[in-house]
Design a binder for these strands. Structure first.
Length: 576
RNA sequence: CGGGAUGUGGCGCAGUCUGGUAGCGCAUCUGGUUUGGGACCAGAGGGCCGCCCGUUCAAAUCGGGCCAUCCCGACCA
């Protein structure tokens, strides 16, 4: 494919509305253009990359026993009313009416439709399991779309669904899919982690997310430096390994702490370590206020609070609620004498003699023994893990890294099969609900994540498995017949080993071609010019390492093969 | 939805405070000189200054309203 006849409108400058690097580079490399907020045009090179990602997905999903189908993007509101999500999904679901005033929505996900398809056809236990997937455009009317393809409103997603006889079957489907996901992200050449995650509103008690590791990631993941444990920070367990303190302390007393609202302010005023303070946070769980206690140097993990209370919704209380519950402005809440339920983080049992808010403006209490002076509903793991914590599995140090969530697999149980009556007859002729699982990969987000993880100041560094073109041949002297003839030979040679080659024989100055090649990110670059030809060589550049080399024109074909293999080897080595 | 910012040729920006009829760089077109990491010279084309209403002799500039985009937050697969 000749560069001159490709639609690759590269830009020298980043668009003003792009913030993250993948967005900037996708636009600069001529791969995407924004149509409107959160909605992008995929230009030819982006489409090539998406297709390559999709090929890997198709092969691995097929290997895992999933068959591809294509569901409609427009879905009837009735199905969503049946599952209950018409009212629960929220504004992210883009709804509209047809000419007959019937409700419709654009599919943000397809559990309803797939369940409808399967319940219509599957009658017998003999037909199960059923495993299906599709690759399709989704639409979610995000409150705040951002970061280019990372969080768009319209995006390409691979979504798979499994229907099994029972929990054991569902486990097997889940496991098979998890394995497939490992293969997928490995093949794509990305550094990733599979992490335990909170299952959110979709259902099930746990799930796994697949994160591409990148500094710009929206999520924080905690992973063990020794064992396989890795979890989204929302979920990461904190194991309290200390002893319960058996001593008590002197009776508590009030101390004036004017204007000391924050832990830091109280600490500096009283000359204390933050760990001596108990932070009392007032939350509202499904409309009811509760108090949550953590050490002054810790952060509450509201997902854990939500799970502990089995609440639908948990949020930090506003100033009015805090005033109503504690009788004091924000900053002076404490557990002593509170009338709402109080939950404490496990590690608070390790000591006594804490400083807490006095539930009174500008005052705190010294020498509080939680066991003696207040009623604690329960002690539980309620805080956010930190880098100083240990792995809850093996006790080795934990490290925190940033990740971009590119895949998520869920056990759905019977949430949809029960709401929508998706059942089969077992061998005894008795009706049973199918047990479901769902498995998503954000295809367009994988593209963005690949760039977030792999770029430098010159542009994108595409992994070969994703690159729109694995190889580019740069002809520096297109007017020279000898140079051009060698360049075309190089194209043919590369074509044989790495698919369609991008051939730049534009009448441009060399600098422009080098810059564009780096920007567009072809992993394999081969340069033909008068100077090299005079020395009897073609020049090479490995985009990943930046290493330059030469190939003798006498052995061009073998040399090219060797170079491609060498580039692939650097990618393979980098993954480890 | 709350807070902040921005909107000026295709792209990136200046000009707005202090009103006087729009400018720079890149890109595009023509001619010439160049040619191994985003060349140079000369010339040319291209703008309802986001939209509407107002103030004024006069509005990119002042006032009001609206719209769009981006960032932070809330929210969320």
């Amino acid at each position: 494919m000749r560069f001159r006849s490709c639609y690759i409108p590269t830009l020298k400058e980043s668009p003003a509305d792009a913030e993250v690097i993948s967005h900037k580079l996708l636009v600069r490399a001529g791969m995407v253009r924004k149509l409107t907020s959160g909605i992008y045009v995929y230009m030819p090179t982006a489409l090539r990359a998406l297709k390559k990602i999709e090929t890997v997905l198709r092969e691995e999903m097929a290997a895992a026993g999933f068959e591809e189908l294509l569901l409609p993007a427009v879905q009837p509101g009735d199905l969503w009313k049946e599952s209950g999500r018409w009212t629960h999904y929220g504004k992210e679901l883009l709804r509209f009416k047809d000419r007959n005033d019937r409700d419709y929505c654009l599919g943000p996900t397809h559990e309803e439709v797939i369940t409808d398809v399967v319940r219509g056809e599957v009658r017998s236990y003999r037909q199960l399991p059923v495993r299906l997937f599709q690759i399709q455009t989704k639409f979610r009317d995000e409150i705040r779309p951002r970061f280019g393809l990372m969080r768009g409103r319209e995006f390409v997603m691979k979504d798979g669904y499994s229907f099994d006889l029972d929990d054991a079957g569902a486990e097997a489907s889940y496991a098979v899919c998890k394995k497939a996901y490992h293969s997928i992200f490995s093949r794509l050449g990305l550094r990733f982690r599979a992490v335990e995650a909170d299952s959110g509103s979709i259902g099930g008690n746990f799930s796994h997310e697949f994160h591409v590791l990148a500094d710009a990631g929206e999520d924080t993941i905690a992973s063990c430096t020794q064992c396989e444990y890795a979890a989204n920070i929302e979920r990461a367990e904190v194991r309290f390994a200390g002893e319960k303190c058996t001593e008590t302390c002197q009776a508590f007393e009030e101390v004036a702490t004017p204007d000391a609202h924050s832990v830091e302010e109280v600490c500096s005023l009283l000359h204390l370590e933050p760990s001596r303070i108990v932070k009392t946070m007032i939350f509202v769980a499904d409309g009811k206020p509760v108090a949550v206690l953590v050490r002054g140097d810790r952060e509450v993990n509201d997902v854990k609070v939500k799970n502990l209370l089995h609440a639908e919704e948990v949020e930090l209380a506003g100033p009015e609620t805090v005033q109503a519950v504690t009788g004091a402005p924000v900053g002076f809440a404490g557990p002593v004498g509170l009338s709402v339920p109080v939950y404490a983080d496990s590690e608070l049992v390790a000591a006594t003699d804490y400083v807490v808010g006095a539930n009174k403006g500008d005052a705190h209490l010294l020498h509080v023994d939680l066991a003696r002076d207040c009623t604690i509903e329960a002690y539980a793991d309620l805080r956010l893990i930190t880098e100083h914590d240990c792995c809850p599995r093996c006790g080795a140090p934990i490290e925190l890294t940033r990740g971009i969530e590119v895949g998520h697999i869920f056990k759905l149980g019977c949430k949809y099969s029960s709401a929508m009556h998706c059942a089969y007859l077992d061998e005894n002729g008795k009706e049973q609900l199918m047990v479901m699982g769902c498995y998503g990969i954000g295809v367009s987000r994988v593209l963005a994540a690949a760039i977030e993880q792999n770029h430098d100041e010159n542009g994108i560094i595409f992994p070969p498995a994703i690159a729109p073109f694995v190889a580019e041949v740069i002809n520096l002297d297109p007017a020279d017949a000898t140079v051009s003839s060698w360049a075309e030979k190089a194209c043919q040679g590369l074509e044989a080993v790495c698919g369609e080659v991008l051939y730049d024989d534009r009448e441009e100055r060399p600098g422009i071609k080098f810059k564009d090649a780096d920007l567009v990110g072809c992993p394999v670059q081969v340069i033909l010019g008068g100077k090299g030809i005079a020395r009897g060589v073609a020049e090479t550049k490995n985009r990943l390492t930046g290493e330059k080399g030469t190939i003798s024109l006498d052995q061009l074909e073998e040399g090219l093969k060797g170079f491609v293999a060498q580039v692939e080897a650097t990618w393979a080595a980098r993954k480890a």
